[in-house]
């Protein structure tokens, strides 16, 4: 189960990387970046996960909090931070793409080069 989980998250990240390298459309690159982020975040959470462990919230029924009882909470906190950072980057990138489109009327960084291939 554990292997499946982190394989999936890494494959997701690799799909994002592939998209970022292969695509020319700025919006598609941004979406690829978001997929990459999701994959990396999933990887972080997955690596702290364990089937036997519980949600990291102390309740009366659990009694004494011992590290063994809980899923590792630190990657979850890190992922919380990285999600917000991803949001910030996406917002700035969208504003920039909008500005670039207004200026040039194009959504690719090299407008002339790939028009022959029928790509916009």
């Amino acid at each position: 189960m554990f292997t499946i989980l982190y394989t999936i998250s890494l494959v997701l990240a690799l799909i994002g990387i592939f998209g970022m390298i292969s695509q020319k459309n700025l919006i598609k690159i941004l979406i690829s970046l978001n997929i990459l982020e999701t994959g990396v975040n999933l990887f972080l959470v997955t690596a702290g996960w364990s089937a036997e462990a519980k949600v990291p919230i102390i309740t009366g029924k659990l009694g004494l909090p011992a590290a063994v009882n809980f899923v590792d909470p630190l990657p979850q906190a890190l992922v919380l931070t990285s999600i917000v950072i991803g949001l910030g980057i996406t917002a700035v990138a969208l504003a920039l793409i909008l500005r670039y489109y207004r200026k040039t009327g194009s959504l690719t960084l090299e407008p002339s080069e790939f028009q022959a291939g029928g790509e916009r």
């Binding site: 970046l33 990396v40 920039l96 670039y100």
Partner: peptide, 19 residues
Amino acid sequence: LKYIFTGGLASMLMLLGIG
């Protein structure tokens, strides 16, 4: 834009490494 995408890629790889 180039900086954003290169930077986004590099920083996500870095986060993977930190993880």
